[in-house]
Amino acid sequence: MFVVNLTYKAPLTEIDQVRDAHMEWVKAGYADGIFIASGAKRPRTGGIILARGTREALDARLAEDPFIKTDVADYEVIDFAATSAAAGLEALKD
Rank of each mutant, 00 (worst) to 15 (best):
M1V: 12
M1D: 09
M1P: 12
V3D: 04
N5C: 07
L6I: 15
T7L: 13
T7F: 11
Y8S: 01
Y8I: 06
K9C: 12
K9M: 09
A10K: 06
L12M: 14
I15G: 12
I15L: 11
Q17W: 00
V18T: 07
R19I: 02
R19A: 10
D20G: 03
D20W: 02
H22A: 10
W25C: 02
V26D: 03
K27E: 03
K27S: 08
A28Q: 14
A28V: 08
G29H: 15
G29A: 14
Y30I: 02
A31H: 08
A31T: 10
D32N: 13
D32F: 04
D32Q: 14
I34N: 03
I34T: 09
I34S: 04
I34P: 05
I36Y: 09
A37V: 03
A37D: 05
A37I: 05
G39K: 13
G39M: 11
R44V: 10
R44E: 13
T45D: 08
T45Y: 04
T45K: 10
G46C: 11
G46A: 12
I49N: 08
A51F: 07
R52L: 01
G53M: 05
A57W: 00
L62D: 03
A63I: 05
A63D: 04
E64C: 13
E64P: 07
E64A: 14
E64G: 08
D65I: 13
D65M: 11
D65Y: 13
P66L: 14
F67T: 02
F67E: 04
I68H: 13
K69W: 07
T70D: 05
D71T: 08
D71S: 14
V72N: 02
A73I: 03
A73H: 02
A73S: 13
A73Q: 01
D74N: 09
D74S: 06
D74L: 01
D74C: 01
D74M: 02
Y75A: 08
E76M: 12
V77F: 11
I78W: 00
F80I: 07
F80W: 14
F80S: 04
F80Y: 13
F80A: 06
A81W: 06
A81Y: 09
A81C: 05
S84Y: 15
A85I: 08
A85D: 13
A87C: 01
G88I: 01
G88S: 05
G88N: 03
G88W: 04
L89H: 08
A91M: 07
L92V: 02
L92N: 06
D94R: 11
